[in-house]
Simulated scan of single mutants.
Amino acid sequence: MRAAVLEEHGEPLAIRDVDYPEPGPDQVVVETEACGICRSDWHAWKGDWEWMGISPEPGQIFGHEPAGVVSEVGDDVETLSEGDRVTVPFHLGDGTCPYCQNGQANVCDTGMPLGFIDGAPGAYAEAFPVREADFNATKLPDGVEYEEMAALGCRFMTAYHGIADRANIRPGDVVAVHGCGGVGLSAIHIANALGAIPIAVDVQEEKLDRAENLGAAATINGAKIDDVPGEVQAANDGRGVDVAVDALGIQETCHNSVMSLGKTGTHVQIGLTEGDTGGELSLPVDMMTLQELDFHGSYGMPLNRYDELFRLIERGTLDPQKIIGQTLSLEEAPETLASMDDYETVGIPVITEF
């Protein structure tokens, strides 16, 4: 089968013929119908995450936002059959640890990030295997298309978990989203759909225009002003916002997000850092203490939240398709991934031709 394979960090992925996966007893093989290209793939491709033990080796197949059809089933799999339409979370849990048992499989003790390590080859390929398939594979409702499921796969569901669960927003809350890539635009759409008032911050007008179309009540171009938190507050009648999201993961956006909050506000960290930070950013801790600000991380989404997301999609409340920026072929994946060096992608690119 064909796959886009890592040859060297920072060098274009190579389209190669590789062996078709064979399922272990607890696994299924899924033929890929769609897979998003995510900035997390870009981080791994650049070699950013050595500090946390994720440094993909040559030969790794990326791709962690998939949807497809079960083509082969391991002997011990009980709930899936050939032909089932499925998706899987990018954080493949073992199904047995205390977190998996408590409905928090996104932070599984032995979680395997799909597409980032050798034991979990990803979906920039015609097919990919899924560990503990009975636990990890989720059947798609009839009304959910592969393409929109791939858009939901990492960025959309992470934004949903961050906005709905970690920040616990309420109708009328003002939410500032710093960084309008795929996860930031998802956060704008979700906040608006759940009755909050989103404010979008980015440095590219095209992304701010997209945010406005997705429901942003105000947009702020951070490249044109010196005081982003002050401008966010000005957009909210001079007051700090209720919730602020760093959807990029650099020092500037994290700091601006925290500083744009009002007293007792909530910061949600979704964006992960780049390689030169070692995973650490500085914070105004005294101000956070005196104003009783909350700081929450948001990583993926627990598996038990899929049903709610599907219901909201089926009702038309949420529409992941709105976040898709382009559809492309597997051959176009290397160039599209590399273009994230300069933040060129708008919305979520999705591979639909393999």
Score class of each variant (00 low, 15 high):
204 Q>E: 15
206 E>K: 12
206 E>F: 07
208 L>G: 00
210 R>I: 01
210 R>M: 04
214 L>Y: 07
217 A>N: 01
218 A>D: 04
219 T>N: 04
220 I>C: 00
221 N>E: 13
222 G>S: 09
224 K>N: 15
224 K>S: 13
225 I>K: 02
230 G>R: 14
231 E>S: 12
231 E>Y: 14
232 V>R: 02
233 Q>Y: 01
233 Q>P: 02
235 A>D: 03
235 A>R: 05
236 N>K: 07
240 G>F: 05
240 G>L: 09
242 D>F: 13
243 V>Y: 07
243 V>Q: 05
243 V>R: 14
244 A>S: 11
244 A>R: 00
247 A>F: 11
248 L>T: 05
248 L>W: 00
248 L>Y: 06
250 I>D: 03
251 Q>C: 02
254 C>I: 01
254 C>L: 02
255 H>R: 15
255 H>N: 15
257 S>T: 03
258 V>I: 15
259 M>W: 03
259 M>Y: 02
259 M>G: 03
260 S>Q: 00
260 S>G: 00
260 S>R: 04
260 S>N: 00
262 G>K: 08
263 K>N: 14
264 T>G: 02
265 G>H: 03
266 T>H: 05
267 H>F: 08
267 H>Y: 09
268 V>T: 08
268 V>S: 10
268 V>F: 05
269 Q>C: 03
269 Q>G: 08
270 I>P: 06
270 I>H: 10
272 L>H: 07
272 L>T: 06
273 T>I: 07
273 T>L: 04
273 T>A: 11
274 E>P: 00
275 G>Q: 02
275 G>D: 03
277 T>P: 04
277 T>L: 05
277 T>F: 05
278 G>N: 05
279 G>F: 08
280 E>S: 08
280 E>K: 11
280 E>Y: 13
281 L>Q: 04
283 L>V: 15
283 L>W: 12
283 L>A: 09
284 P>M: 08
285 V>R: 09
287 M>P: 05
288 M>K: 12
289 T>D: 15
290 L>T: 12
290 L>E: 13
291 Q>E: 15
292 E>Q: 13
292 E>C: 15
292 E>F: 07
293 L>F: 12
293 L>W: 14
294 D>V: 09
294 D>H: 08
295 F>P: 11
296 H>E: 07
297 G>W: 12
297 G>T: 13
297 G>C: 11
297 G>P: 12
298 S>E: 10
299 Y>I: 12
299 Y>M: 11
300 G>Y: 14
300 G>E: 10
302 P>L: 14
303 L>M: 08
304 N>Q: 10
304 N>H: 08
304 N>V: 14
304 N>W: 11
305 R>G: 07
305 R>D: 15
306 Y>P: 13
307 D>R: 09
307 D>W: 06
309 L>I: 09
310 F>S: 14
311 R>V: 02
312 L>F: 08
314 E>T: 03
314 E>N: 01
315 R>S: 10
315 R>K: 15
315 R>G: 03
315 R>Y: 13
315 R>C: 05
316 G>I: 02
316 G>Q: 06
317 T>V: 08
318 L>H: 06
318 L>T: 03
319 D>H: 07
319 D>V: 01
322 K>T: 15
322 K>M: 14
322 K>C: 10
322 K>A: 15
323 I>L: 15
324 I>W: 11
325 G>R: 14
327 T>L: 13
327 T>V: 15
329 S>F: 14
329 S>Y: 13
330 L>S: 04
332 E>G: 10
333 A>P: 11
333 A>R: 04
334 P>Y: 14
335 E>H: 13
336 T>P: 06
337 L>V: 08
